[in-house]
Design a protein around this nucleic acid. Structure first.
Lengths: 217, 217, 217, 217
DNA sequence: GATGAATGAGGATTCATTCAT
DNA sequence: AATGAATGAATCCTCATTCAT
């Protein structure tokens, strides 16, 4: 009875959600220009004009996909940054969490990569409200680690970008990687192994460097 | 005088080259689906049908762009790998060389990224003949470094992918990076600085790790 | 009032029918290759893309035209054949009926002739389900006429083809004929006169032949 | 030595002839609209612009094909008509000769059929100078046969058209016929058999009709 | 909320033709 | 005589969008 007619508000919302699902898959797979509203409508099982009952146009649909997809990512980022109070393993932990999140939503990194290639115009507003402060704090955090004696301050942003590229690239180069290793880097196992690997790299990079001349080789 | 009459055959070849130039820029900027033959033709300054005097269709043009663009990269890779006989700093050197090459052809990494997102179907044949053996030797090379005691054999491919992502990502996230740092990462200075940075990271990662403590576990 | 709002579904169906009408005229006049979708759209009074709301593509439109046009012809043929039980004047009657039918749909013979010249690929499926059995029975019928002592069994199919050619050719050579006779062979009068003529020819050909040596020539 | 370099005049003529050959095949197979200059050039083994060294344009090429093809047919017709002085079996003989000629040039009937469907505009000038008088005499000839008591004068032209359709149709319905009989109606055997068949029909039709039983009408 | 129908704009591709070489 | 290159015009078709139902 509770599920019977479904308050039409809810049903509408559900349709919109289905559209977002289908659209996310399409945009992630083929990019904005490569995706047609027919692709999306077919994915939902409705006709094209129905899409316009839920989204103003293709552009708005794309923006909605991006926003819905980015929200959990940005939330995690800001949350992770705010708990800097914890001792220090946050960075590596963040990478693991991010990898896990993206592993469950593998469309997102592709979406982001396409968006970046396209100029990132749609990402800007989202980043403006979320990532900006997150990055600021992230920088602060990084500067409080031992790495501070290793990397010059102006290199810190590059360190961030580097890890962004590693993590996002993990998903966008999946076919290539699979071709190389023979195992699927997007499978739970692959995600697990590689997130450990990336975390280790990260930790290694924020270690203080051995003062050269010590016991060295 | 040297350029005066231009042995007619030459003119055709030059047109084809101009088309490749324009097409490379378009495909790199907007991807395959987002690029219009009108875009390309306008870039060359000819009419659309003229494109068909030089390339069978959009697809063939794209393939030609990719091949022409990838050739120097693949050549460098294979060359670099073959000179493994040299002592050992090859890896870091390779990164610097690659960054320099890509810095002069910033379309290439974008082209590759778009292509990877699209499934890499067109990259496959190119990689098959060049990168495959290069990678094999590259693995061998890596395994002859001190890192061998640090990374498990099955992690080595991931190390490669990681650096691929770092280097390619440097170019595809350029706008984002610029937004973050305020300076253009694609300028000669930016390329110089970041290639040093990435090389340092790389060297750091293939260092033998300090046995934590000393006698280790 | 009867034509006022038109139950929307009806409107679509009617458009499709108008398209078929226009397309039939075009294809009959200029053949498949010579017909452009612009011709058809102009004939209907709609824009070209609207055609695609009703037919998948030019090819499908052509197939639909052919099928719609051939159906009454094939139905008549099979009907006519089935009533073979009647005494015997069926053949001549069939020719008259066919001439009358085609006289009212003079596009059809031209359509068929164009199609045959093109290889008859689209006619095959239609003929397969209708004409095949019809021809079988037609042969049986012919063999039960006095002509049986005149034409060898293997000539019977040629007799059929001959009449096919006479009837179809009547329409496709109309301009030539008119040029020759000065009167329109496609006018009701022309159809009437020539169908009598062809029927007489047919009857004459299925008469038993005079045993040569009778009353001489 | 006589065949060595081939006086360039001759060579040019030969190319033109090759073009006509290829064009004839193309036009016969696919009609005017369905034939592209690329088809023709490919058939000859030259490039498209070279066609223009021999024929002003597609239209002129088509006219030349038609004229070259029709000439022997029209010559035979006029020759055949002129020898009416011979007793009388001319008609049946004409059919046999025509079938033999067309059997060796099976492109011609298809060419003519396409041309008729297209309106016969290009055939008109040819017919004007040849067929017109031929037909006049042909009518006279027919009227001097026993059939004169059978067919009304105004039916005579239809008799001619009928045989035109039978003969031309034999070639244009070849695929259909083959499908029906299992043997190729365009093979030497098929031509031989069917031309005998058509001749017999013709003779039968120009016989005086047997006054059915009584003393006639 | 859903959809059949219509359409302006545009997209890849073909075609006949021209021209310089 | 032959042809590579260029191109205006057209062709088939797709796309995003609108609107009446």
């Amino acid at each position: 009875m509770a599920t019977a007619p479904l308050p039409s508000r809810r049903r509408g919302t559900q349709t919109a959600e289905s559209i977002l699902d289908a659209a996310e898959a399409c945009f992630a797979r083929k990019g904005y220009a490569g995706t047609t509203l027919r692709d999306v409508a077919d994915g939902v099982g409705i006709r094209i004009p129905s899409l316009y009952n839920h989204f103003a146009n293709k552009e708005a649909l794309y923006a909605a996909v991006l926003e819905r997809g980015m929200t959990p990512v940005l939330e995690m980022l800001s949350r992770s940054v705010q708990q800097t109070d914890a001792d220090y393993p946050a960075p590596a932990l963040l990478i693991r969490e991010m990898m896990e999140l993206l592993g469950n939503r593998p469309n997102l990194p592709r979406l982001v990569q396409y968006e970046l290639l396209a100029g990132g115009q749609h990402l800007a507003p989202l980043l403006e409200s979320w990532l900006r402060p997150a990055i600021a704090q992230s920088l602060a955090m990084l500067q409080s680690t031992p790495a501070v004696n290793r990397w010059k301050p102006e290199q810190i942003p590059y360190l961030l970008v580097t890890f962004f590229n590693i993590v996002v690239g993990h998903f966008t180069t999946a076919t290539l990687t699979e071709n190389l290793t023979g195992s699927d880097p997007l499978s739970p196992t692959g995600i697990e192994a590689s997130s450990a690997f990336y975390a280790e790299i990260f930790e290694s990079l924020i270690q203080a460097i051995e003062p050269p001349g010590d016991s060295g080789d």
